[in-house]
């Protein structure tokens, strides 16, 4: 009797009730759709590389942003963090001619520090992360633009990475696949370990689920939230480094598209906007979905404008599905609530 109950709960029924399943269906659906509409070129290695490269950069940002969102916060500042860090690298190692690794460390440090500042302000003031990170998005963007003009006198700075750094951060394998894909894999393994295997991961879920109860159990809530914002800043800075090495330079307007794209990837991946629930596999699938739509459209011969329409609809469906999941999970077993 008891084993029967156990089997049921890990079976198909519970699988389809998880939001990640929706993300899997979404990713498969858009892949099949564009495989048919885009034909052989889309499915060829070059086609796969085009969306994998986009997914890799987005994924490196989306995974830590997902952690922030599971803990119940939001990080909109990633766009400016990316610009600030890539500018830091380009100015230090390009304009001033310092070794590339010095620029990279400084860039990652800049991203992490902006993240810590976000976390510090959010936890000290108790203002919504939405407002605080929107403010940093603008402030950091303005700061980057102002300082770059002041120091360099232009809004674009070129940089040539040394061969080792170029190989590690900015090459295309087989002329197609960006090394960012491997960085993405690394970030995915690390974030999965943090979320599922470390104690810290349990704290993230607890803080997103019920911050007051989490605090009552002795979890250092403020420190965890600050650390997550720092991770999010680090992720954005890493993409800044990858882009600067890949494109041999930086522009102040880089990265703004990641602000909303990362949230789309995370939400399509089944992370609840209210916090408390989410999975790395879901976010990876959400990222792939986004990248497939974003790049697949070019293989169809249609106007690329339609990609945004598809993404908008997917986002709406995902939020509705996630909401339904949340309602079911919260009312499960309570028949009174189900009637509503």
């Amino acid at each position: 009797m008891s084993t029967q109950v156990k089997k049921q709960s890990v079976g198909f029924g519970s699988l389809i009730r998880r939001p990640e399943f929706g993300a899997l269906i979404g990713a498969l659906a858009v892949y099949i759709f564009f495989a048919i509409a885009g034909g052989a070129p889309f499915m060829a290695p070059g086609g796969s590389a085009s969306w994998l490269n986009v997914a890799a950069e987005l994924g490196i940002i989306a995974l830590p942003v997902a952690l922030v969102m599971i803990a119940g916060d939001l990080d909109l500042s990633v766009g400016s963090v990316l610009a600030a860090s890539s500018m830091t690298l380009a100015i230090l190692s390009g304009f001033y001619g310092l070794p590339t690794w010095v620029g990279i460390i400084a860039a990652l440090l800049v991203g992490t520090l902006i993240g810590i500042a976000n976390g510090y302000i959010v936890t000290k003031t108790n203002l919504p992360a939405f407002v605080v990170t929107l403010a940093t998005l603008f402030a950091v963007s303005g700061l980057t633009l102002g300082l770059t003009r002041l120091l360099v006198g232009s809004t674009a700075v070129s940089m040539t990475a040394d061969p080792t750094t170029k190989a590690l951060f900015g090459t295309l394998l087989d002329g197609k696949f960006s090394v960012a894909i491997f960085w993405w894999l690394g970030v995915a393994v690390l974030v999965s370990w943090i979320l599922y295997k470390s104690i810290f991961g349990n704290w993230i879920f607890a803080i997103g689920g019920d911050v007051i109860s989490a605090r009552a159990t002795g979890i250092p809530v403020a420190k965890v939230r600050i650390a997550l914002f720092a991770a999010s800043g680090f992720g954005a800075a890493l993409v800044g480094v990858l882009q600067t090495c890949m494109y041999n330079g930086a522009q102040v307007a880089n990265g703004q598209s990641f602000v909303f794209n990362s949230i789309i990837a995370v939400v399509v991946g089944g992370v609840l906007l209210t916090g408390g629930y989410g999975s790395t596999i879901g976010v990876i699938l959400g990222t792939l979905t986004f990248a497939i739509v974003n790049q697949g459209i070019y293989y169809t011969g249609w106007n690329a404008d339609w990609a945004a329409l598809i993404l908008g609809i997917l986002l709406l469906i995902a939020v509705l599905t996630n909401n339904t999941f949340r309602r079911l999970a919260l009312s499960g077993g309570n028949k009174k609530e189900k009637k509503n």
Binding site: N202, W203, F205, A329
Partner: peptide
């Protein structure tokens, strides 16, 4: 924590 598993929520903190 409603969205955590029984085992995970039991040992929070």
């Amino acid at each position: 924590f409603p969205l955590m598993s029984i085992g995970r929520s039991f040992f929070v903190g």
